[in-house]
């Protein structure tokens, strides 16, 4: 039985005059510890699907099962969600920010607190706990956001283009950090991106989405040689450009 099961998801956005189908007939399975990417042109509903998995709103029809149980929003903290920007609260210190999730379930004291502060040094921000987000660079803030997401020990991580607002060098470094951190904790992750290279470098499987209505067009398995490498080294592997070309052609064909 798969870890996360997405069954026949349909989603339609309604307004007073129109109905726009964002997702049609999406079914996919994700295994425990797997890193998958949703790749596709803008407007293909990949972020909508991620929001549905996160439980931010219910789909029009279909269901999502996590470990064979229906995913209920807000029941327990099984989902970690990382956004395009860090969205650290500017009036809280870094320490308060990353303890936020635990504070909401009143577990921000004792052992949990120590564990979380350890997490902060794991992402290389050990001595910034007392600083405010504005005193940190963009890359450091996104790392703090990663620590905040991991602090509640979610079963699955949803990454909504978390690297898209960063400069290239920071992005490459952060890709490696996220990849290694997730692997070492054995976390399952779903990455939404429009960057083919990023999808190949980081994931085990890639779901290519087509638009109008959003649906899974094709699934690519990333070869084992690439999966075992960190994203930075994967980009230099001879297999990388081959897969890149394949996916590129499929994406091109989608646009016409």
């Amino acid at each position: 039985m798969s870890f996360l099961k997405i069954q026949d998801i349909h989603h339609t956005y309604f307004s007073n005059q129109t109905a726009a189908t964002a997702l049609a007939d999406i079914s996919l399975d994700i295994e425990k510890g797997e890193f998958v990417s949703f790749l596709g042109p803008s407007g293909c509903g990949k972020t909508t699907l991620l929001s549905i998995i996160a439980g931010l709103f219910p789909p029009t029809s279909g269901k999502i099962l996590l470990e064979n149980k229906p995913l209920k929003a807000n029941s327990d903290l099984s989902i970690g969600y990382m956004l395009q920007q860090d969205y650290l609260f500017p009036w809280k210190t870094i320490e308060e920010n990353i303890l936020l999730g635990l504070k909401l379930i009143k577990k921000d004291e004792g052992l949990e607190r120590i564990k979380t502060l350890k997490l902060l040094s794991d992402v290389g921000l050990g001595d910034t706990g007392k600083l405010y987000p504005r005193e940190l660079s963009g890359g450091m803030r996104q790392r703090a956001a990663l620590a905040r997401t991991l602090a509640v020990d979610p079963k699955i991580l949803l990454l909504d283009e978390p690297f898209s607002a960063l400069d290239y060098q920071t992005k490459l470094k952060l890709e490696d950090l996220v990849f290694e951190t997730l692997k070492s904790f054995g976390k399952t992750a779903v990455l939404v991106t429009h960057d083919i290279g990023e999808a190949i470098a980081m994931s085990d499987r890639i779901f290519l989405f087509s638009a109008n209505p959003g649906s899974v067009y094709k699934t690519f398995k990333v070869p084992d040689e690439l999966r075992e490498l960190t994203p930075f080294h994967a980009r230099n592997h001879p297999q990388y450009p081959m897969l890149f070309q394949t996916i590129w052609k499929e994406l091109e064909s989608l646009e016409y």
Binding site: G55, I105, V152
Partner: peptide, 28 residues
Amino acid sequence: DPNYLKVLQTFGATKTQAFREAILPSSF
């Protein structure tokens, strides 16, 4: 910014918590 609420919502925050942690302080 609704994204602050999104962050809190994924942490399972109640409406009261969302008000106290995001709405009120950012309106100071």
